[in-house]
């Protein structure tokens, strides 16, 4: 008997969401098959890779990242450098300085940073806040105003602050809203419903369903991705068809596997190699489970994940 190939082609698809403007704009999502299952149907928009920079720089930076940005004087310089990497599809700026429990930089300063970064690059921009719900709400409103016409993505609107963020980013200034929930299908769906009810078109929403580093409760992340993806495709659930973006690097560069020094763990070898390994492993696993974009830091991780995506698509 010849082999009968199983095929899973769905009548539903992940939304195709455009980011950025001009020649370098990209599309997230659009696929109607399981991640990388090109043998079921062609995947038009490959998963995308963003590079993460912070307006504070990163502490304890490994040589590979530090050297890469050597000579950069401003965050905008860093963004420009990052955007020049061939494998990078978008740049992601974290406005960490805004954190009221940290530097508490005024909103106006952060708006300036975001504007400078946006002017320095020709690739799409993703803005990450400082993880303080109130401050992020104030911040995104002003940044979205300043970046009108740039079609940037804002991470994130959460249950606690989606009202003001979705209204400003999604409605008033017509950009893309990132909906962040915590590793649970129902929570992800509920937030999409709430943001849609405000009037934001589903085509302007991207999800961050929550993440962790490989080894750290990561099975919940994988299963949530699997379940969301399967509800979107096999049950045609319109409130779960937003493409997913996963900030990987902020998790993977914080755990012991990446931060323990060589003096501390002599048998473990180079901390930089371990960090890359954690970043690559986590990124590939979320892409294989349905994320349409990942956010990374290390040039080697970016090159490696990009190469794998090219081989598979």
């Amino acid at each position: 008997m010849p082999f009968k190939k199983p095929v899973q082609k769905f009548n539903a698809a992940i939304n195709a969401v455009e980011l950025g403007v001009g020649e370098k704009k990209i599309v997230l999502g659009g696929q109607n098959v399981m991640p990388f299952y090109t043998f079921d149907n062609a995947i038009e928009n490959p998963p995308r890779i963003g590079v993460e920079i912070s307006d504070l720089g990163f502490e304890d930076q490994v040589p590979g990242i530090r050297d890469f940005y050597a000579g950069c004087k401003t965050v905008a310089d860093m963004a420009k450098k990052a955007a020049e990497l061939e494998d990078v599809d978008f740049v992601c700026i974290r406005l960490d300085s805004a954190d009221p429990n940290g530097e508490n930089a005024p909103v106006a300063d952060c708006v300036e940073t975001a504007r400078a970064v946006s002017e320095a690059i020709d690739k799409p921009l993703v803005i990450i806040g400082c993880d303080n719900d109130e401050k992020d709400a104030q911040l995104f409103e002003k940044v979205a105003d300043a970046l009108q016409g740039k079609n940037a993505l804002y991470l994130s609107a959460k249950e606690e602050n989606y009202k003001s963020i979705a209204a400003a980013v999604g409605l008033a200034y017509g950009q893309k809203v990132g909906a962040e929930s915590s590793v649970d299908l129902n929570l992800a769906k509920q937030l999409n419903v709430l943001i849609s009810q405000i009037g934001v078109d589903a085509k302007n929403i991207v999800m961050n369903i929550g993440t962790a580093a490989s080894g750290y409760g990561f099975e919940y992340v994988i299963s949530t991705l699997d379940r969301v993806n399967s509800a979107a495709l096999s049950q045609n659930d319109a409130m779960l068809q937003m493409p997913i973006i996963t900030p990987v690097s902020s998790e993977t560069w914080a755990v012991k596997e990446s931060t323990a020094t060589e003096e501390d763990m002599p048998q473990w070898g180079s901390a930089e190699t371990r960090g890359i390994s954690m970043e690559v492993t986590t990124a590939v696993a979320v892409l294989a489970s349905g994320s349409s974009a990942v956010i990374l830091r290390h040039p080697t991780s970016i090159k490696t994940v990009a190469k794998l995506i090219k081989e598979l698509i």
Binding site: G215, Y216, E257, Q267, W268, S270, M278, T282, A285, K307
Partner: peptide, 30 residues
């Protein structure tokens, strides 16, 4: 990267050139 892909998607045995701590910490955790 490949070992991560095949750990998630259906590899029962995965062959690497060598097993380093860097690879092991990430892959065994996964």
């Amino acid at each position: 990267a490949l070992a991560s892909l095949f750990t998630v998607k259906y590899g029962s045995i995965i062959v690497l050139e060598k097993m380093t701590y860097a690879e092991s910490l990430a892959l065994h955790g996964l």
